[in-house]
Amino acid sequence: MAENLFDLTGQVAVVTGASRGLGQYFSRALGRAGAKLIVTSRKAGDCDAFIAELAAMNIEAKALVLDVRDEASIKAFAEAAPKQFGKVDILVNNAGMNIRKRALEVTWDDWNAILDTNLRGPFFVAQAIARHMIAQGYGRIINVGSVTSVRGSAGLGPYGASRGGIKQLTMSLADDWGEHGITVNVLAPGWFKTNQNKAMYEDEGWVEYLVERIPMKRPGAPNDLDGAVVFLASEASRYVTGQTILIDGGISVGATRALVKK
């Protein structure tokens, strides 16, 4: 057993959707813990600036193209990934998207785009990488979900369905692959500012409304995710599988402070 259960030295981690946002948060945390990184984006060159940033942090990283909506892209990625550093120990299934609309406005194409990216894609990426993990008898798969994995929200019907689906899928994969030394868990962030939702954070009234419903009294900050992703990627979580870990400041508990008279 490693002396430091959170040390990822010698481990190789893949982070999908790492050209921006949460994917970069996760990558930095894993790299600081000692992992070598394979970061992906849909277009060649999208991660070049990030690779340079990681190099300045003395984190070794390489970039691969991966479109999780495209079967051929997944197959090419799965063949290339283990060749970058000789293996893959950790997969962070982060690539995702959202289209915020009321349920009556959602189109057929909206539904397909969201579910293909957030649910079908992560399954087939995990399946492809799991083949390598099974061969080596070890792996950590972290599927990125959301607080909507466990609670509903108006305007997020297809997105919530995809994130709830990730929770259920993760439990099935944990059961399938546990005998091979592979753990599969969900890391489910609450409200963190990303490119997808940054316009909402410019509305002071909305931010005030949000904070009132978060027991910790603030939205998430990037380093709030570090401990959870390193935990789930490391030996510290060796007996944790099929679980959904919410990093949400408590919003999923259904805070009722506003209803309580002072």
Rank of each mutant, 00 (worst) to 15 (best):
P222L: 06
R42M: 12
A188T: 15
P189M: 15
A35I: 15
F85P: 06
V186Q: 09
E53P: 12
Y138L: 09
M1N: 05
A128S: 07
V150F: 09
A18M: 06
V15N: 13
R120E: 02
A228S: 09
E204Y: 13
V207I: 11
K43V: 13
L104H: 00
E179L: 08
S41M: 11
A81R: 03
A188N: 15
A130V: 11
Y201M: 11
A49I: 14
M200E: 14
K43M: 03
R100I: 07
L173D: 03
D116M: 06
V260Q: 10
I59Q: 03
V14E: 01
Y159L: 00
Y209R: 11
G96A: 04
L156P: 05
P122A: 11
G155I: 13
K198T: 15
R151H: 07
I129H: 04
S172H: 15
I129P: 04
G152Q: 06
L210Q: 02
A29V: 09
W206L: 14
E179H: 08
D7E: 09
Q84Y: 08
G34N: 08
K198W: 12
N118Y: 13
G31L: 14
F123V: 08
Q243G: 05
A128Q: 02
R213N: 11
G205D: 02
W111N: 09
R131G: 08
F85H: 06
P122V: 05
E179T: 14
E105I: 09
M1W: 06
V12R: 04
G165K: 05
V229E: 01
D116V: 07
K75C: 07
L54C: 06
L259V: 13
A81S: 02
S27G: 14
G139K: 05
Y239L: 12
I214G: 00
L210S: 09
G190R: 15
D116Y: 03
D109M: 08
I134S: 03
Y25L: 07
V147K: 07
I90S: 10
G86R: 09
L156C: 06
Q127E: 10
L187K: 10
A49G: 15
A255C: 14
G34C: 10
Q127K: 13
I247M: 08
S234K: 08
F85R: 00
M171R: 14
L22W: 15
L37A: 11
R218H: 02
G17T: 06
P219E: 13
N98W: 03
G45T: 11
A188Y: 15
A29L: 08
I251M: 14
W108E: 12
A228E: 03
G17R: 06
E204C: 09
V68M: 02
V12W: 07
G21C: 12
S41G: 12
G139Y: 14
F50K: 03
R218Y: 03
L8W: 06
E208Y: 11
